[in-house]
């Protein structure tokens, strides 16, 4: 382990000079181990593989953090738990929930964005009546009323369809109504629902409508800390990010082992589905600005457009102060070479 660290440090130093060297050398003294916890947005699954890999391989320990990973659940709001100090770090819903939290005065700061692109798409049957976004008019559509509905509204507005003209209903846990053709368009995350729909309808029988194609972007899966942690323990935040990035790179470099680690914790999961999930998550995490700047990069342009979108639809009372809500100083301290795949 130690050898690899040193090799890595040497490599980083050679690549970016003294600054990088000093950075990598700093946390090597691990005499004072700090207890911290990471609250996920959902139950253990491959969507969070990198964190579990980092934990399993002792990357957090190496950085002097004794990390506990707490899964999420329905109606458990990560922002809330981080704001109150119940958890140190959080992998929260996304830019939407960070904005909503800031809008309500919660002292949370985003320190990294995981999914650089909108992680969900809208899906219709190829042999159905919806072939392009314009066709959404008067059709039955289900979506999540937690942000996805606004993405949908924005997509429709861009092609001149009044969002009110579509029959938009809240989406339940199951995609069965879509599979049974009771509804025309369903919302699906690329890493989860889409897998189930592919399995049951067949990949080739589906039309996918990607928000980015309509010029709408909604980055999700945001890493957050409380303002207090950000100001009082900046080095803890840095070390956490460094170990997490390392864990994710390891997970993508050795996917089989990463899935093994996940399956050990949650044995009832479907392995094939988890493998699919990790591949899709990888695509989302290295998309856009992350392809050059590396994992967890905060793309201020994409985040800003989501900010404007939510303000436009009245989800937040006014656009949030971006620089206060999104602090990229921590993730930027890690050289891009270390963060890139």
């Amino acid at each position: 382990m130690l050898n690899r660290r040193n090799v890595l440090a040497a490599f980083a130093a050679a690549a970016i000079g003294l600054q990088g060297f000093g950075m990598s050398a700093a946390p090597a003294s691990a005499q004072d181990i700090i207890d911290a916890s990471l609250r996920l947005k959902w139950l253990t699954q491959a969507q969070f593989a990198g964190f579990y890999v980092a934990l399993e391989k002792g990357y957090y320990k190496e950085e002097g953090i004794n990390l506990t990973i707490n899964p999420g659940g329905p109606n458990l709001l990560t922002e809330n738990l981080v704001a109150t100090g119940a958890d140190t770090f959080g992998l929260s819903g996304g830019t939407d929930s960070v904005f909503a939290a800031r809008d309500k005065g919660m002292p949370v700061v985003c320190i990294g964005v995981s999914h650089q692109q909108t992680p969900f798409v809208f899906v219709s049957h190829k042999d159905g009546s919806v072939q392009k976004v314009e066709d959404f008019k008067d059709r039955k559509i289900t979506t999540w009323f937690t942000g996805a509905n606004h993405v949908l509204s924005a997509m429709l507005s861009k092609v001149g369809v009044d969002p009110k003209s579509a029959d938009i209903q809240p989406q339940q846990v199951s995609v069965t109504p879509f599979v049974d053709k009771q509804i025309d368009v369903v919302t699906a995350t690329r890493y989860n629902e889409l897998y189930v729909i592919n399995q049951r309808v067949g990949k080739d029988n589906l039309n996918l409508f990607v928000p980015e194609d309509s010029g709408v972007s909604f980055p999700r899966d945001t890493l957050i800390v409380s303002e207090q942690t950000a100001t009082e323990k900046p080095e803890l935040v840095e070390r956490f990010l460094r170990a997490s990035v390392k864990g994710w790179k390891e997970a993508f470099a050795n996917e089989k082992e990463a899935i093994d680690i996940i399956m050990k914790i949650a044995p009832t999961l479907d392995r094939a589905q988890q493998e699919f999930m990790l591949k899709e998550v990888k695509t989302l995490m290295v998309a856009g600005k992350a392809s050059t700047d590396g994992l967890f990069t905060i793309d201020k342009a994409a985040v800003g457009s989501a900010n404007d979108l939510l303000a436009q639809y009245g989800v937040i009372s006014k656009p949030v102060d971006l620089d206060k809500a999104f602090n990229s100083s921590f993730i930027d301290k890690i050289p891009a070479e270390e963060k890139r795949l």
């Binding site: 139950l43 699954q45 329905p74 846990v173 949650a266």
Partner: peptide, 15 residues
């Protein structure tokens, strides 16, 4: 991470 409730949730949301 463990418990019947966790298994139920996992199964529910993975259909």
């Amino acid at each position: 991470t463990t418990g019947l409730g966790v298994l139920l949730l996992q199964a529910m949301y993975n259909e």
